[in-house]
Design a protein around this nucleic acid. Sequence first.
DNA 1: TGGAATATTAAACAGTGTTTAATTAATTTT
DNA 2: AAAATTAATTAAACACTGTTTAATATTCCA
Lengths: 203, 203
Amino acid sequence: MGITDRKEREKEELKETILKAAKTLFLEKGVEKTSMRNIADRIEYSPGIIYHYFKDKNEIFHALHQEGFKTLSEKMEVLSVIQDPLERLKAMGKIYIKFAMENPDMYDLMFIKEAPLCHVFDSEKEEWIEGGGAFNGLRMTIKQALADGYFPAHESESLAYMVWSTVHGLVSLNIRKRCEVIDITRRENIVSDGLDAFFKLLG
Amino acid sequence: MGITDRKEREKEELKETILKAAKTLFLEKGVEKTSMRNIADRIEYSPGIIYHYFKDKNEIFHALHQEGFKTLSEKMEVLSVIQDPLERLKAMGKIYIKFAMENPDMYDLMFIKEAPLCHVFDSEKEEWIEGGGAFNGLRMTIKQALADGYFPAHESESLAYMVWSTVHGLVSLNIRKRCEVIDITRRENIVSDGLDAFFKLLG
DNA sequence: TGGAATATTAAACAGTGTTTAATTAATTTT
DNA sequence: AAAATTAATTAAACACTGTTTAATATTCCA
């Protein structure tokens, strides 16, 4: 039946409209400072309607959260052509940081904010699927590096976490404006300079 | 005159009481979820009174912020006896992480949350004094390390930022519950294991 | 066309940070 | 000591917030 299909589509459309408006506002003025009424105003509907499409504000957040991970993992796809694990690792770091610096609010949503993660993995103890997939790419690369003789005496899981921590630290301190302590002449490029320093350390 | 002094002291006392109540609640249920009425309830005063001692909620946050930095810098004092810069750097990392893991909510307040930093350095462009002091200790240690021949071809500012980023990343990903991606058998000790991996990389 | 289902809304509820004017208490001045 | 002044404290209000409810408008199918 094409009719029910179209109905479904139209329903999906409004859902999409809500999501788009929410995204704009969330990334513009932050999640906390965006109210349901703000979203409703923007799409020219009453606030109540949103609750027909999303359980609550957190569910909207969660939908955008997933969207962000999809975008990031798409950007990581180009890595498959890089054979050398160390080179791939470095390229990975660059992509990660580029994504974070180009979409700071989305990065914030994905990795810094706290609110709604319970939503993400608490349900059915499925352990944060999106994030797990992304981290697995890093883990595999590290494992291959170890197998190829890089980083002797290291162990994959803690090394992978440490690598992730470094790139996350570089961008999150910057996003959350803790870089005021950095020498002003170095501040502008401190994130990529820090990444280079890390690469130098990796060898 | 002792009388005005005592008055001053009594005034300070209520301020201290507010601060203590706010701290308890902030660290118990988070800053966002603690309302001014909650604080007022706890000290058995009306909500309005708080505004006689603090401009707004942010100012309370800021006061606790400073307190956290004082505590952390006190813990760093023992470092002065360590001569070798690399050893001192490692000890620094351990203290930093220990502080963060023992006071996750305070750490969150100091380095992860975003709200009130404008308060901290925007006033008089004095550039985030507390944080600057703490970072300077790291910077000095790194500079000494470079002077002593450690980390050849590295440069102090970006290296210092990278080191800070790594330890911050290690703890902040953990505090903000992004460690669900880590192998469950390794999860409990992943922060200190990650730190060890970093130390191994430093040499 | 009438009845059922759905979409949408207006209104209410309990909460928020903050400001205001009023009230109580303390201090100083007469 | 009494009155006037100042400070401390409060109750009430304002304009918000997320969410729920019952009522209304719209659409669909028989």
